[in-house]
Design a protein around this nucleic acid. Sequence first.
RNA 1: GGUCCCAUCGUCUAGCGGCCCAGGACACCACCCUCUCAAGGUGGAGACACGGGUUCAAAUCCCGUUGGGACUACCA
Length: 594
Amino acid sequence: MRERRDAPRPAGAGRAVDSRERLRRLVSPRTVDRDRARSERRPYRNPRERRDPPARNHRGDGLRRRDADRVRHELHDALARGRRPHRHTRGRGSPLARGSGRGRGRGDRGAGQPGGGPVSAVRTRFAPAPSGSLHVGNVRTGLFSWAFARHHGGQFILRVEDTDASRVTEEAVHGVIESLRWLGIDWDEGPDVGGPHGPYRQSQRTEIYHGVSERLVAEGKAYRCYCTPQELEERRRAAMARGEPSGYDGRCRRLTAGERAAFEAEGRPFALRFAMPAREFVVDDLVKGEVRYAPGTLTDFVVLRSDGSPTFLLAVAVDDLLMGVTHVIRGDDLLDSAARNAAVIEALGGTPPRYAHVPQVLGSDGRPLSKRHGSTSVESFRERGIVPEALMNYLALLGWSKDAETTFLSRDELIESFDIARVSSNPAAFDVKKLEWMNNHYIQRLDDDDLAARCMHFFSEAGLLPEPKVLRAAMPLVKERMTTLRESVELLRFLFTDDIEPNERARALIQQAGPAYLRSVADALEAVEPWTVERIQEALDRASAASGRSRKEGWQPVRAATTGSNVSPPLPESLALLGRERTVERLRAAAAPS
RNA sequence: GGUCCCAUCGUCUAGCGGCCCAGGACACCACCCUCUCAAGGUGGAGACACGGGUUCAAAUCCCGUUGGGACUACCA
């Protein structure tokens, strides 16, 4: 099973290279020439600018020669790939979508496509911003994206959405990678493994964004906006007060040549804005269905800031296009930006990916999960002793279901049965209790060696150094008693340290039983031979009976004296592991006046 | 304010017009098992937000209301 899953990987990498080869054959020399000629013209750029390139502040739409070449290359590549429209069967949704044919598989070839070529594989990506740690809401979305790609035998890309390349995020990037790997998610292309469409970090792609911006401006699809933040804010307020839409009013789009010249002469800083076509936009979302925006409701947005840095709206569109992403699966907080992303991609001559906006994960208070919900990062669950199998299973069922019954799914079963059309359209609240219940379920089914190995970390963290053999032998006693791996430490601490300060309830039990009884039990146990669970149990029962106590009355004080607690794993089993010597010692110590 | 999304037990969900006086799971309650704590078993309580339509028939389709959420940034 696993081998089969991994198999497509080398093939996938090969396919990407093939696409470049294909491109070379597909693009006729004439086309290339025409393209070059166009870029040579650069109608938007005035000669003065060209003469002194390293000008003051930035050059929003400016770009060095080789960047432009490279971007053109990338774009061709992407367009060659994107030209074939990909489709995906909609399981539910608008009747319109349904009417156009049912059992069509994904990735069918577009009819009448010049060149034909192999069916384009599914490619999805997960693009977390490495600000702080990866919280479970985000990974849930990433998990869906991953499961979708794997289900369709496609590729999964990890892309880091970092605005700037500081060293701080270097650690965060590492953390994201660690968390995903721990969970069991793998990717075919990413910052750590590379790939044919890199770099996979936004901060390292700025020249690409600049190249694209240049092209957008050259084709009149983006323009310089000289509005200051204050002006923008004022007009926004005014529009709102008038009950009008509060987006950008398009002022700089309508600037006369004279006004523009004046701003330029003034040396006003400017941002680059994308000119949204004045038409209706429709996003045929895989989980939300058809979402329509009337003409004019989606306003022009900034694509390059006045300091030359790209905005998210530009970067995602460009990256998805260049990386050949076929399906964008992300949080529905980004639903409204899908039309904008698609518009940019279309402006670049590409085919937008299919979008699937999955609902946000909520905290227990019903608000979207965020940092202020406390420890919700993957890392924090790991540290609490949640096993990755449980977290993945739980997350998979948060907003998605296989059917009415299925509760437990392995990684492979998830891949096997994941269907984006069955993703729920309403938000789901994260329920820690259920996660813990599921965690216990998985822990119970782990084999003892594995479980012991996983628990070891928590013991050493607590300053305890269990003998591996003893720890392993203790696993059957605790596996159904812990909801997290971490709890194994408290449950078994008495085995690995002699420093067992009895808790309050234990002290009371010892007190109540009295030293005479404890001594009698010590005597009885001292004579037990061999030191086995059965013999120990018999001895305990005999001592209880001899003093006229029920099993419960007789055993609890022994538990208290030997484990320091009124709660412990089964007593005879625990004592068997503790050893005769330490058992007797502890009983006598408890019996001695303190 | 405008645009968009969402609405079944406390929570996660099944449900795509009759199979539903709504099924499963977590949590909760009771009982059983029992050396404590768990685990396990059995049973119980618990929901279609509201109002209009459409239809022989609506949790399911349409409209509205209400309530959540997102966007409306030179955040992502």
